[in-house]
Design a protein around this nucleic acid. Sequence first.
DNA 1: TATATTAATCGTAATATTGCAATAAAACAA
DNA 2: TTGTTTTATTGCAATATTACGATTAATATA
Lengths: 110, 110
Amino acid sequence: MGISKTEIFTEDQNTIAAFAKAFAHPARVAILQHLFKIDSCICGELVNEIGLAQPTISQHLRELKQLGLIKGSVEGTSVCYCIDAKNWEKMKKTMAQFLDQDIVSKENCC
Amino acid sequence: MGISKTEIFTEDQNTIAAFAKAFAHPARVAILQHLFKIDSCICGELVNEIGLAQPTISQHLRELKQLGLIKGSVEGTSVCYCIDAKNWEKMKKTMAQFLDQDIVSKENCC
DNA sequence: TATATTAATCGTAATATTGCAATAAAACAA
DNA sequence: TTGTTTTATTGCAATATTACGATTAATATA
């Protein structure tokens, strides 16, 4: 139905899915990569850097901000965004726990 | 427009987004976790384990299979799925490269 | 062969996501 | 104050995703 049945999954599973969703669009990947690359924070520069309209970028930024992966601070008329290092580390731990799982038995049916 | 402008992004960015999309739903996270946990491969057991209808699980399995993260082999009337260890490692490398980025300068505007 | 079992596919409804034009809001400058 | 710049919000169209009932396909068994 286009709606995920979040209630039947564990909190852990929903958290992983929520973080993964943040990276599930190339524009958000590009935004994050740019924020990592540029030593000073960015603003509407992202609109030029990435080839999407300003409202679209703004929308992606809001999603990343709501998840806590980036922070924004107003600088005059522009807004400066950067990675929230603390939360990024927390996210990394959660994702690593999921991604670094080991297969119990190597010899299966497949 | 509900359609990602994949053509304006790098192959790397699209690849990361595609992998992330695989984990962007708790059902697929649950499926993968179960495949990791159970030493022998699973089939329709996943339908019982996870509380979703058989066609829904089948759909999620197909997505994971298309991405190459899991393999499936027919065992009589049932189908046995398991993690594709090789591709999982490749995916992990791609994701790690993205997740393990370091911020150039710690002191920014934010 | 007929029947059961299991999984894939089809079709469809409900909801979510992506993208942007238009507009509003906020901060500064003249 | 008036205009300028920058970003957020609103509203909407196009497309994607999620979920499942019904059906089909494939295999095994009686």
